[in-house]
Design a protein around this nucleic acid. Sequence first.
RNA 1: GGGCAAGUGGUGGAAUGGCAUACACGCAGGACUUAAAAUCCUGUGGCCGCAAGGCUGUGUGGGUUCGACUCCCACCUUGCCCACCA
Length: 826
Amino acid sequence: MSYSTHDIIKIEKKWQDYWRKHKIFSVEADPAKKKFYCLEMFPYPSGRIHMGHVRNYTIADVVARFKIMQGFNVLHPIGYDAFGQPAENAAIKNNTDPAKWTHRCIDEMRRDFIRMGFSYDWDRELATCDADYYRWNQWIFLKMFEKGLAYKKASPVNWCPSCETTLANEEVIDQKCWRCKNEVQQKELEQWYLKITDYSQQLLDDLRLLGNWPARVCAMQENWIGKSFGVEIYFREKETGTVIPVFTTRADTIFGATYVVLAPEHPFVERLIAGKPQESQLREFLRKAQSMSKSLRMSGDQRKEGAFTGAYAINPVNGEQVPIWVADYVLMEYGTGAIMAVPTHDQRDFLFAKEHGLPMRIVIKDSRRPHLKAEEMTEAYVESGELVNSHQFNGMPNEEAKKNIAGWMENNGIGKVTAHWRLRDWLISRQRYWGTPIPMIYCDHCGLVPVPENQLPVKLPEKIKITGEGGSPLEQCEAFVNVSCPVCGEKARRETDTMATFFDSSWYFLRYCDAHNNKAIFDPEKTAYWMPVDQYIGGIEHAILHLLYSRFFTKFLRDTGLLKIDEPFDRLLTQGMVLKDGEVMSKSRGNIVDPGSVIDHYGADTLRLFILFAAPPEDQLEWNDSAIDGSWRFLNRVYQAVEKKYVEVKQEPIRNFSNFDEMDHELYREIHATIKKVTEDFSKDLKFNTAISQIMILMNKLEKYQVEDSPEKQVLLNEAVKTVVLLLAPIAPHLCEELWQGMNQKGIVSRADWPAYNQEALVQAEVLMVVQVNGKVRAKILAPRDASEEQLRALALKDGKIIEYLGDKPVRKFIVVPNKIISIVV
RNA sequence: GGGCAAGUGGUGGAAUGGCAUACACGCAGGACUUAAAAUCCUGUGGCCGCAAGGCUGUGUGGGUUCGACUCCCACCUUGCCCACCA
């Protein structure tokens, strides 16, 4: 058979059918076997796969196949993150049913995965939009509700008045609704939250357990959780004595506080301004500030607006009376919703004070400009220095003062050392159709009633009209909404909010362990065997939310006794993006390369090889139409090598090393060096690009190798060819199966044993050593392995070139790095 | 503004203290062919040189070292993430 596109397509189809028919990649939990759980982030089923999927899933597939060959019981599942807005939008646009649309997309995607030759356990396939799956979302929600971790709270949402619907932040573009282009408002709605903040400390502490995660992902999570230490200082309102706690990380600047600022939403504001002369102006300001959407209010260089309340606060450290302001640059969600302003040492306070003519006082001396006056400052001084104007703390370095002042405040009851977090509770309510219904019921008599477990799943109603307008589609579905109260039996109403899809994806890796259990979320014995995921692979865009939520769910389920692990994912790889002409591939840029057409032309193996070879997995990958020809050519050469170089030898000649000539030794060494390199690259840092390079080097060597009718040499050559096929099998599995069969080997290559390398084969009797003189390479000498310094000195000093470079200068230093380099200093 | 990456031939990249540019793409020349494709061979950082060879070279400047793409300091550029977080 020749190597043509036509044949390749046939070969690939043949092996894909074989693998599926014989369930080669289906596995069962078996405590007698060592397990390996290889997982990729499951896709949103948008239809055909794109290069990002190809890259992500090819990397995972190589890991899975490699581990199988190494003898592990490998769990490698796939599923679909199938709820979410695109299906609903498509339904609105084409007047179709989201379920139908989604399942059609899933079918297309599955076909593409099969065509890529991925080694999935198809028996565990799942889709989050199936009731078999989302009933367990509801079950988890009820458990969380039971434990007080799911609760309802009024909070502002982006609201489009013309579509009568809530919008995600991403759907608000320039303050306007992405669909109808009308102005978006903020509206208070009762929303469901998960109390992830109960786990803040654990989520932070356990980052230490994630040594096999990219450091930057941990750093991003740490920043997101955002624990900051500081002091809550108790200011008092002058008239009533009401305590106003403010949070600061800069207690050292307390003597420079010249005003206090409350967030517009601060509950105390209302009482403060009532009856004040400027009340109406203040109300106007508050109205404006609160109607502004959060994203606008927080946008970078927004001017800081604010107003004086007419009230004053007493600074507890010096009894000083300072004005209380309300300003939009203070956020209710962070700290106490109130700050002490130190304009001289905080840039935001500085800008605000300049804008509104508020007083300033320097309390930390800038050693470079010790005589600077506050009114001469052009920006806040935020560096360190000695305290001034700070009573008994004058002269103290400010870092020291931070601790001392905090301690002094605690002793005097005017402040408390505390920590604040950036992490907020997780809003999971969506006023959408295509998601998991939140299993709660509102009863006029009994209040908020959870749906009893035995009534799960609360199914999404089918065949309902979705227009995108008039609020949540479920709200209009009488059959869904009207229900009798599970407690008193009276008429009641169902919750019509659905869950954010991040809920679905926070535990799918657990369901894979026992995908079709209809009695329980999973059998704890099965998760005990398979979990944690040994290798997780996905995009960096999920570095924060998805991974944090999954960690939270894992800890929660551990606390309910279902899991025994603290963290779900042992090793994490975040693969880089696929670029074309230096830009991310996207429809709008028109620079998409369709994987399907590449497979049609070259076959899946070539695509797999190229995408692994072109860049290390974590880096960005530049798509190159002509470079893929190189991958095709290489596989062709492998094919030819088996056809032409592999000759079965009847009698099994005894390998006799003493008969090896230099060429034999070289090939033998290269075989084992390649096994070693590929094994290490596949195991440790998943450096497929260098593993492939090394296989190419072995190919280059074996192609040049001459057998000269010697059966012994033929055995050696056969071993080289066989090694290439084995090492390449995880990367180009279809071709390697075909070649394996062609070589009359037992079984299939997907289940073959991964070759072991012989360390002795790598040891050379003589090594080529580089000789440097004054740091420059001047000669290379062949020296016996592990030669002594004396031997090497003698060898080096009789080398013609070295003699020339040394001249009659005396040798000052003679440095030997064994078997590598000799460095002579004169 | 804060945090984290990264910067190496015409291109993707290799080398993480020890021969810079492995492996591949591209390009040039050659073989085969009526011709083309495919395939194979040779060359390919820059400068000087007929050559042997020499000098130079990993964003910029400094440092540590016998020796630095690699480690340290400062700067420049690009990318990503976070960001009125007190």
